[in-house]
């Protein structure tokens, strides 16, 4: 039986062209991406519609939450609990945290999903100050963080937690942390991927070993150092 329609194989050619284009995209992505970011940066500055926000853009923050909904907390009802293997467990209100010596760090927020925001100022209390105030017992080797979204958890070794670039952040971009960015209080671990910087922080607990956090249970590195991957 002769074919009812004949001619050049158009669909196959289009398909192979698309695959070729994709391969070329993967090869040239490192070069194209910077230009694309610049173009988008310029476009979004003159975009009253906000539609440019829908374009693929590795620059700019994105909102991630693992919980279905996250309660809002303000200075009135926020509490940060410190416990576990410490001499003096206790809680801090937002006011009490603000009254402590504040440190400002300008660092990068880089997500494993490819977006990054350079030069973001965070300010707050050094985690090491809070640990010293609570008095870590000799058996304490790691710190576990819990969040008032009720789901997320994170962890650091005691050595990492004592670094001078690990903050209990109260401000971001020189403004009080908003709910969308994990406010009123979040963790900021400057030298690591942003998933380590737990949002909506509500509890700090010193433990005798590292308990992997939420994404780490799903295969993320417990030590999320930034320089592993360029």
């Amino acid at each position: 039986m002769s074919e009812p329609e004949s001619g050049p194989p158009i669909a196959r050619r289009v398909m192979l062209s698309m695959l070729g284009l994709g391969a070329a995209g993967i090869v040239t992505a490192p070069f194209v991406q910077n230009g694309w970011e610049r173009v988008l940066g310029a476009v979004s500055q003159h975009d009253p519609t906000g539609l440019s926000g829908l374009l693929p853009n590795p620059g700019g923050f994105r909102y991630y939450s693992v919980a279905a909904s996250v309660p809002r907390k303000t200075a009135a009802d926020y509490q940060l609990e410190i416990g576990g293997l410490v001499e003096r467990p206790g809680t801090y209100t937002l006011g009490e945290l603000r009254a402590l010596p504040q440190t400002r760090i300008v660092g990068e927020a880089r997500c494993t999903d490819g977006w990054r925001v350079p030069d973001v100022p965070f300010a707050g209390v050094l985690l090491s100050d809070l640990l010293d105030a609570a008095g870590v017992r000799a058996k304490g080797k790691a710190v576990r963080f819990t969040c008032f979204d009720g789901v997320y958890t994170e962890s650091l070794t005691l050595e990492q937690a004592r670094r001078a670039d690990v903050l209990i952040a109260l401000d971001m971009l020189d403004e009080p942390l908003t709910h969308e960015h994990g406010g009123p209080v979040r963790l900021y671990v400057a030298p690591m991927y942003f998933y380590k910087s737990a949002k909506w922080l509500s509890g700090i607990s010193v433990t005798d070993k590292v308990i992997p956090g939420y994404w780490e249970e799903y295969g993320y590195d417990v030590d999320g150092w930034l320089d592993q991957e360029a």
Binding site: G22, G25, I26, A29, P30, V32, Q33, W36, L54, L55, P56, P58, T112, D113, G114, E229, A230
Partner: peptide, 25 residues
């Protein structure tokens, strides 16, 4: 490539994400 990050070390995760995002659009 985004799922199994270390499957092909020659292709950076950022490149895979970029092509995935643009093609998705």
């Amino acid at each position: 490539l985004m799922w199994f990050t270390r499957a092909l070390p020659a292709i950076s995760r950022a490149s895979a994400i970029f092509v995935h995002d643009v093609t998705a659009l």
